[in-house]
Amino acid sequence: MTQLGIFLQTGGASGAAGNPMSGIFMMVLVFVVLYFFMIRPQMKRQKEVKKFREAMKVGDKIVTAGGLHGKIKDMKDTSVVVEIAEGVKVTVEKASVFQTGADMAQR
């Protein structure tokens, strides 16, 4: 007999004798654990990042998703001009900015 057959036979015998509500309770318990340990912290981080992006202003030090460190020189609707070295400016999307210099100092 295959391992799958043995597993199904033993699972079927114990499932019939057990309480049918225990399966539903376990599913709810798994969802609650996932919510508090994975979903909720991720939503909190997303709110913080959104708040960082809305509070950015010219002169702030930032770090992009690609790891570029620089200072904001100009802001547009969806992009930011960042000076990464003396006289070297790059344009990056606001969505790629994750931290500002002040936020990094606090961590």
Rank of each mutant, 00 (worst) to 15 (best):
N19R: 13
S79L: 02
A102G: 01
D77F: 03
V30G: 03
G59V: 00
M75T: 01
G66H: 08
A17Q: 08
N19S: 15
T100F: 11
V92M: 07
M43F: 12
V33R: 05
K94L: 15
G87L: 05
E48P: 00
V33L: 15
F7A: 14
F52Q: 03
S79A: 11
R40V: 02
I24K: 14
M21K: 13
K57E: 00
A85S: 14
G101I: 02
S14A: 13
F37T: 09
M26I: 11
A13T: 09
V58K: 06
F37L: 11
G67P: 02
E86R: 15
I84T: 14
G101Q: 04
M27P: 00
V32H: 04
F7C: 06
G66L: 08
E93F: 09
M38F: 11
D74H: 14
G12E: 04
T78S: 13
M104F: 11
Y35D: 05
F7H: 11
F25M: 10
V82F: 05
A65H: 05
I6W: 13
I84G: 05
F98V: 04
V49W: 05
V49N: 01
G67Q: 04
I72Q: 00
T100H: 07
I72H: 02
A17T: 09
L68K: 11
G11N: 12
M26D: 09
M21V: 08
G101C: 01
N19W: 11
K44S: 13
L4I: 14
L29R: 05
K76Q: 13
G12W: 04
G59W: 01
V30K: 01
K76H: 15
G59F: 03
I62S: 04
K44D: 08
G66M: 06
Q9K: 15
R45C: 07
F36G: 09
K44H: 06
S79E: 02
V58I: 09
G101K: 03
L8W: 09
P20D: 05
G87D: 08
V81K: 10
V90E: 05
A85H: 08
G15D: 04
F31R: 04
K89M: 12
V88A: 12
I84W: 05
T2L: 09
I84E: 04
R53L: 07
K51M: 14
V33G: 05
G101E: 04
T91N: 12
Q106A: 15
M75E: 03
L29A: 14
F37Y: 09
Q3V: 10
Q9F: 15
K73H: 06
L34V: 06
A105T: 06
S14Q: 12
F7T: 07
Q106H: 13
D74L: 15
G18R: 10
G87S: 08
Q99P: 00
D77Q: 13
S79M: 08
A55L: 07
G12A: 09
S22L: 12
K61W: 10
R53N: 03
A55T: 02
Q3D: 10
Q3F: 15
I84H: 06
